[in-house]
């Protein structure tokens, strides 16, 4: 397992061997482990940036990690606003970061 993981823990013990799960994040091929969330698998792969603010484009990553803040929302296949922190990765999953959206009605921008 990769270096992003806590394999040995003095109290919780050694992490069990788990099956690898192959998935993509913005077309990059990554490996996670069965039963873990998209957020955990991405962080273990060193991915901190999960989306940007739809309007301002400011970058965001996980914040609350338990489904409250919606900051880690990503697109999975055709599903929008999937909370990375609550969603378990599946083999072949295509995860995409949230992108900036057009704001045609904002003052000062073209309609």
């Amino acid at each position: 397992m990769s270096k992003g993981r806590i394999i040995d823990h003095p109290i919780l013990g050694r992490l069990d061997e788990r099956e690898e799960v192959h998935f993509t994040f913005d077309e990059n091929k990554l490996i996670g482990y069965e039963g873990e969330t998209i957020a955990a698998a991405l962080l273990a792969n060193g991915e901190r940036v999960l989306r940007c603010h739809e309007e301002t484009g400011k970058l965001r990553g996980i914040y609350c990690n338990i489904g409250h803040c919606m900051e880690c929302r990503v697109n999975v296949g055709n599903q929008k606003s999937v909370r990375a922190c609550l969603t378990v990765i599946q083999e072949g999953m295509e995860v995409k970061s949230g992108r900036k959206l057009p704001t045609p009605f904002k003052k000062g921008e073209t309609q």
Partner: peptide
């Protein structure tokens, strides 16, 4: 505090002890 890498303390707890992933 909106920068990636800033998280609630509870988020770090879950990541560390439940997911066993280094924050």
């Amino acid at each position: 505090w909106t920068l990636p890498g800033v998280m609630s303390i509870g988020a770090a707890q879950v990541m560390t002890n439940v997911h066993r992933v280094r924050v």
